[in-house]
Design a protein around this nucleic acid. Structure first.
Lengths: 339, 339
DNA sequence: TCTGTTTTTGGGAGCGCTCCCAAAAACAGA
DNA sequence: TCTGTTTTTGGGAGCGCTCCCAAAAACAGA
């Protein structure tokens, strides 16, 4: 098959391949009428530059890597991730990048693939989904000056760009709403405390109680792992402490919590009011429909790609930050039994 | 940063870059002691060949593209897809391929990205998830001789490799089980009839009825779209026809079906027995837990990658086929009220 | 030892682009 | 018209690999 090259386009347009390269790359110093003539040939032929040749010649590869670290591989099947990926993919498509997926299942896989990310032989930059605060991958990426954007904020000391939602505020608003409804003995099922999102949503819960001078009861605060089964087990533990409401740090854990209530012959909101986080589509169709903190997951994905492109074009420093607001979506699960 | 190249490894090993290339690519005609010496330098330095250089030099890029066509982009958030992707990613990791994701959201995106797939400038081959039987993408891939493996079988006339599960048999087994339990007025909520999986699971349902000489009742057969909302609407339609059981062609639609029953003040299996397909994790924790046809989703992903690598190494013809068996998982939702 | 054959190894060339520098063209002012 | 400056354009070189062909080395038999 006869492959289109800069040279071939140059011949058709009656210029040199350097001129064609200037047009393709939108360089200045090309006479307008020459630019038009070259662009017309490009449009007519459907010519695209070869990404391997560009990469080899010092240009970038045009590939963005999305890394799901090993520690949270088990959560990859949570409905959050496809939405995040849709946002990321859509922004990649808009900005002419290809999205490559790095799913680390085992330590061996991680050790095998990490050098590819660190040496940037494949990817121009990395979008890194949430990882435990002590995971060494992020500091390796920083050390190797790999352009990186994290989904979710890192530990404060790390000079890395990130996109996030306002987890502290969102959790605060959820718990505050339960307090407004008259709940007083509010429990929480939070995420892993070795993640910033776990810490932040927990902090929001604690802040809301403190703002009403309600002391936090340790027996009402259960750490879980963002899974449905984890939510189920956590609610089983909480029930015996007789909360009148529970803040659950994700919709998926909330499904598990509702299941535990059903199995105990109880229900939300009659016995225990429930408020969760995410506003995934099943939140609206759960039994009962969940009051939840909506976060703009696809928008985070889009924003991460645009932030990464900004790093690629304008340098890694200073690190960029983007924090989206959340929105409390009130449904049936939060009706409170006021004691 | 000082980049490792064949030339540098050659100098360290005291051979030429051609010899190093032979070792890296496991070519014959290298003296054993030379091979060992070169391999030791490679191991010590962590050298990897540059994929862009290999691609440009005529070798392959080492990238496999996973395409989710536009028509089913709305289903990408179904929990089926992350599992499929995990299987695909795991096999790519094992076989030293990078996985690139092509999510087509709009026709414009499809037109923009399809040439990249057809001209193979990025990917060595394509894994293509299910698409409508009339989607032109598959025949474009065939015409351009792009190594392609489909998830799910295509229309019979197409000479393309695929991996699938035994949809007809699985659906047959599910419906047959309902008949064994005494159900006689069995409805079906099936997938889009412009997809082979939709047609096949429907056929299995019809085959099971026919095997017991039970005429199919058109009013009991509802075409849906594999979504939760679609399952909900379909069950709302079915209820008025008073089936004593319903075969639902996916777990996700079954969730919607259960929600419709609840809203009608009914339940499974007391009022209407329900059997579904997929055995996604929430099938076990649904209320009631779903009897469902288990399909090995991750294994399909692994198999698709290995089939694609076989095509790349041994030629596109003849097309390969792999069909995994299914397994009926019996849970509470299928208990039947025998009239 | 010599000659023909086989095995092993090395280096030229090219893949398709970008960068850089120099040449050509265009322009402006004296 | 001439000269100096600016703008536009072209082509050499190289990125890091693979392929191919030729050279060198090794081998075997006379």
């Amino acid at each position: 098959m006869n492959k289109l090259t800069l040279e071939k386009i140059a011949k058709l347009a009656g210029v040199s391949r350097s001129t064609v390269s200037r047009v393709v790359n939108d360089h200045p110093n090309v006479k307008p009428e020459v630019r038009r003539r070259v662009q017309q040939v490009i449009d007519e032929t459907g010519y695209h530059p070869d990404p391997a040749a560009r990469s080899l010649a010092g240009q970038r590869s045009g590939i963005i890597g999305l890394v799901i670290p090993r520690a949270f591989q088990f959560l990859f099947t949570d409905p959050y991730y496809p939405r995040l990926m849709q946002g990321i993919a859509q922004a990649c498509n808009t900005h002419n990048y290809i999205l490559s997926l790095f799913l680390f299942h085992t330590e061996e896989e991680e050790q095998k693939l990490t050098p590819k990310l660190l040496r940037q032989q494949f990817v121009d930059g990395v979008i890194l989904s949430a990882l435990p605060t002590d995971d060494p991958l992020i500091s390796q990426l920083i050390k190797n000056e790999v352009p990186t954007v994290m989904i979710g904020r890192p530990v404060d000391t790390l000079p890395v760009s990130y996109v996030d939602v306002s987890n502290v505020d969102g959790a605060f608003e959820a718990v505050d709403y339960l307090l407004e409804l008259g709940a007083r003995r509010i429990g929480a099922i939070v995420g892993p405390q070795n993640t910033m999102v776990g810490l932040d949503r927990c902090q929001g819960y604690l802040n809301a109680l403190a703002s009403r001078h309600i002391p936090a009861d340790e027996s009402l605060l259960i750490e879980s792992d963002f899974s449905e089964a984890g939510g189920y087990l956590a609610m089983q533990q909480l029930i015996s402490h007789q909360p009148d409401a529970v803040f659950v740090a994700s919709d998926t854990m909330a499904l598990g919590a509702l299941r535990a209530l059903r199995e105990a012959g109880m229900s939300a909101p009659g016995d225990i009011a429930v408020v969760s986080f995410d506003d995934l589509p099943f939140a609206a169709t759960a039994d009962p429909p969940l009051t939840t903190v909506r976060q703009p997951i696809r928008r985070l994905g889009v924003q991460a790609v645009e932030m990464l492109i900004d790093l690629l074009q304008n340098g890694l420093r200073p690190p960029r930050h983007f924090t989206a607001p959340t929105e409390l979506i009130v449904r049936q699960s939060c009706g409170a039994k006021i004691k």
